[in-house]
Design a protein around this nucleic acid. Structure first.
Length: 509
RNA sequence: GCCGCGUUGGUCAAGGGGUUAAGACGCCUCCCUUUCACGGAGGAAUCACGGGUUCGAAUCCCGUACGUGGUACCA
């Protein structure tokens, strides 16, 4: 069996959205599962949509997700170049070869002439407005023109494109790995442009040539490409022979949460969730579109939720590591229908991953969250303990700021509303005395802290429960956070006593 | 318009002739917890429609509807 080589071919035209990342992911999983190579090649031949910096951005996203390519413009490889723009000359050769073999032709029609053709077809009530075998013999191309006329136009440098000559009355079929047998009637396929007037290839020519040159064995892409599959198959047949053609899989779309339709950046803005993997700054407008990473998602969670949006392993398992996904992924179990994106479930995955990750491993990321808020929190053992203490109440990494901030700085404000109405002189006395008791405890641990607290409460004849809430607000500032005595144990004796003393004054004033 | 693809609770989905039609998110109730969560136990809620085939259809076939994608010198 020959090597499995799967490619992801982004066009550097903007941010990397959910659908894009999922396509990469499935490519990656399939390649790795079968011990093959995962290749990234960049389709940068579209001058009008090319965006500066987008290639680097895409590579950064892949890196964050942990989907490292075996070959790419940055990593190199045996099948360079990995940028279409660097292969420009080759495309022309293949296009010319098709012309000389009668599978393609030069077309000199101006946009106006094509527009006129469409108007005419519309007027005639034709169901199709395509440039196809019905109309090509009445257009200005090398099929209708005399060879001398064509040569003359060519010599004069007349702007022209090369179009594929789709045969009439044929059926083109192929087996999609997800959808099974699919058949197209060539009478419904138009003569697509292969080489543009500027000499750049269209996607149709480029994918076929690139996949061949790079020995791609499996090609996964979005469902929106399905209608142009017959063009690619015909091209492959004419150029390289069907026996070397990669196997195709057309992935379902990711839909917007409300209504139907493909998820777009606009939907994210409108509904308040990100659609890009990482913050994308448009170099032209300077606008920043929020990414999952910056919002506080763990890459593991992001990958996980994307993987199961359109695929599952048939068991009840919901949470998968990348390694598990590689092991369990099967292209046959990918759905045919599109799936709506649900941000609530996405957040659940993140919360789940935060809970499952040991605090020590989250240190860098949480530390970065604090840095974002201009707080310096070192990544150390204390941080790890703090993370473990609060992580089950965090959905996003950014929640650590509010959930764990009080472990690093004493509260400046207190939820006095929660305490004052029930605050009494007896309670103030209790806490005064408590600080004394606490400085005398030999071992500062949860059990001792709690025991001392409860003994004193019993002695004072106050229910411990009535004292725990004030204690919490003293240490935390509000009604949240882990168990009070755990907090006290973590922040230490000095800090606990200090916070209690400060707060008693505030509450009593 | 034409062509392609799709359709199981609100959402993600299992199931592919006989099932009480799994499970998860979200929602609701209760338990745990004198904070907020986590966790635990329950609950409401589903096979787009119409015809076949069959003893029997969510499952197979044909229509219809709806959705979605394509119909560019965009990918």
């Amino acid at each position: 069996m020959s090597t499995i080589r799967v490619r992801f071919a982004p066009s550097p035209t903007g941010g990397l959205h959910l659908g894009g990342v999922r396509t990469v992911l499935y490519n990656y999983l399939f390649a790795k599962k079968h011990g093959g190579q995962f290749i990234v090649r960049v389709e940068d031949t579209d001058q009008t949509r090319f965006v500066e910096g987008a290639e680097q951005y895409i590579m950064d996203c892949l890196n964050w997700c942990g989907l490292t390519p075996d070959e790419s413009p940055q990593h190199g490889g045996d099948y360079a170049p990995y940028r279409q723009s660097e292969r420009k000359a080759a495309y022309r050769e293949y296009a010319e070869k098709l012309v000389s073999e009668g599978h393609a032709y030069y077309a000199f029609d101006t946009p106006q002439e094509i527009e006129a053709m469409r108007e005419e077809l519309k007027a005639k009530g034709s169901g199709s407005l395509q440039y196809d075998h019905h109309v090509r013999m009445s257009m200005r191309n090398s099929l209708r023109l005399l060879p001398e006329e064509t040569q003359q136009l060519l010599d004069a440098g007349t702007p022209h494109v090369i179009r594929i000559k789709i045969p009439a009355n044929e059926f083109v079929s192929f087996t999609d790995m997800i959808r099974g047998e699919i058949e197209f009637d060539t009478n419904n396929v138009d003569d697509k442009v292969l080489l543009k007037a500027d000499g750049m290839p269209t996607y149709h020519l480029a994918v076929v040539v690139d996949d061949y040159l790079m020995k791609i064995s499996h090609a996964f892409r979005g469902e929106e490409w399905l209608p142009s599959a017959p063009v690619h198959i015909l091209l492959w047949k004419y150029l390289f022979g069907l026996d070397t053609m990669p196997q195709w899989a057309h992935l379902p779309l990711i839909l917007k949460p409300d209504g139907n339709g493909k998820l777009s950046k606009r939907d994210g803005d409108r509904l308040g969730f990100p659609v890009y993997a990482m913050d994308w700054k448009d170099p032209n407008t300077g606008d920043i579109t929020k990414g999952f990473k910056e919002l506080g998602f763990l890459p593991e969670a992001f990958i996980n939720l994307l993987a199961v949006l359109g695929w599952n392993d048939g068991t009840e398992q919901e949470v998968f590591t990348l390694e598990e996904l590689v092991e369990k992924f099967s292209i046959e179990r990918v759905h045919k229908g599109g799936a709506k994106f649900d941000f609530e479930k996405a957040k659940w995955y993140n919360a789940e991953w935060i809970k499952r990750t040991p605090g020590a491993e989250l240190g860098d990321k949480v530390s970065a969250v604090f840095a974002e808020k201009e707080m310096t929190v070192a990544k150390d053992e204390y941080l790890a303990k703090v993370i473990d203490a609060v992580k089950e109440r965090c959905t996003l990494l950014t929640d650590f700021y509010t959930q764990a901030g009080f472990f690093f700085t004493a509260p400046q404000q207190w939820d006095t509303e929660a305490v004052k109405p029930k605050w009494t002189a007896e309670k103030a006395a209790f806490f005064d005395e408590l600080t004394g008791k606490y400085s005398a405890i030999p071992n500062w641990d949860i059990a001792a802290i709690e025991a001392e607290f409860k003994n004193l409460a019993a002695e004072k004849n106050i229910k411990p429960g009535e004292l725990q809430l004030p204690m919490r607000v003293m240490l935390v500032g509000g009604k949240f956070g882990p168990a009070v005595f755990e907090i006290a144990a973590l922040i230490g004796r000095e800090e606990t006593i200090s916070r209690v003393k400060t707060a008693v004054q505030v509450f009593s004033s």
